[in-house]
Design a protein around this nucleic acid. Structure first.
Lengths: 184, 184
DNA sequence: CATTTCATTGAGTCGCAACTCAATGAAATT
DNA sequence: AATTTCATTGAGTTGCGACTCAATGAAATG
């Protein structure tokens, strides 16, 4: 029984989160809430009518990104498949995900926890996928960290690797290939 | 002919940089210059008498860290030696170096350039060291990025890997061992 | 139709951080 | 000894960002 008011409210909230994700994908996390309000064509006060603090808005954004990460990697059937899926989702949220990992200290503790929890789950999915392949005698945890490190390294330095456009679109396949060679 | 005044001035400057490095190793880069002044037991104005802007102070700090990185890795004679040296220097500046890579967007462009240039030089040293060993047929650049990614991954997530104390002191050897196995 | 609810507004408050500058006094110069 | 230089000081200025709240008017309710 969503009446017109409730509908309007939830739409506004969704719009704010959506626009905030675009804004923070392009500008750093200390960008003002006023800038978000302007981009979303709502008043500054509206932001705070929906999110008590800026931190709460950030948390909502982090959740929005982490959910697909977890579900996509869960569906993976093999290691190559996992790597593909992982890159695919990250590519979709590339710019914003990059902010999250590179400006972790600007995130509230609660958001960090969400990020860490998601990463842990992805690690579990990695190891499940890994079990289908035979690899070197290296602890699976270290293999995951190597993979994650490699991907994040390209993300963090995307300005050098791909000054314009998506690093992962450009180097995703290379990264997958390199990792598969390393562990075989 | 360093005057007493000139001596005093350069000492003050050195002290400010030194203390700033300690402060920013512990707190994020948006920590106020006033906090640095207090920690260094100088007035707030003194900071700006030596550094026109906060950015200039940050640049001085980045240079202070990058110099030993470049010189230490230059001296490396073999790949294992390189990895050792690299970890050794990073361990010394661990907390601060972590800030630099994790809060790059808080750094002025000039500081970023210094960081990027240093990294490029270290990469060259890596490849020189790599030439002494025979490894898989993977582009040397990708191998370096894998190594760098692995190390930075541990640094960025040091809170999880080593909540108290140095991650590299604890995992440096593991990282070296893992990397050497991967490429052999 | 009258009354109440409530999402939205935007001007205003509060606090903090970078940066300024006239004043101070000790060292350098004459 | 008198005068000048200059490193240092810290109270003050400026700007900006998060957050508040009384007002508004359209939708819900009776």
């Amino acid at each position: 029984m969503p009446n017109q008011r409730q509908l309007q409210k939830s739409q506004t909230r969704a719009k704010v989160v959506d626009v905030a994700m675009q804004v923070y994908a392009e500008q750093n996390l200390s960008t003002s809430t006023l800038a978000v309000a302007k981009a979303a064509h709502v008043s500054h006060g509206t932001i705070f009518a929906h999110f008590p603090t800026k931190d709460d808005l950030l948390i909502a954004m982090v959740q929005q990104v982490c959910t697909p990460l977890v579900t996509a990697t869960d569906a993976a059937t093999s290691l190559p498949d996992f790597l593909q899926q992982h890159i695919a989702v990250l590519t979709k949220y590339e710019a914003l995900y990059r902010r999250f990992i590179s400006e972790q200290d600007a995130l509230p503790a609660a958001a960090k926890q969400v990020l860490v929890a998601a990463q842990a789950t992805v690690a579990v999915h990695f190891q499940a996928a890994l079990a289908t392949t035979s690899v070197k005698s290296i602890a699976p945890g270290l293999l995951f960290n190597t993979w994650q490190g490699l991907v994040q390294y390209y993300l963090l330095n995307s300005e050098q690797f791909a000054p314009t456009g998506s690093v992962l679109a450009r180097y995703g396949d290379t990264l997958i290939d390199t990792f598969e060679r390393l562990i075989s």
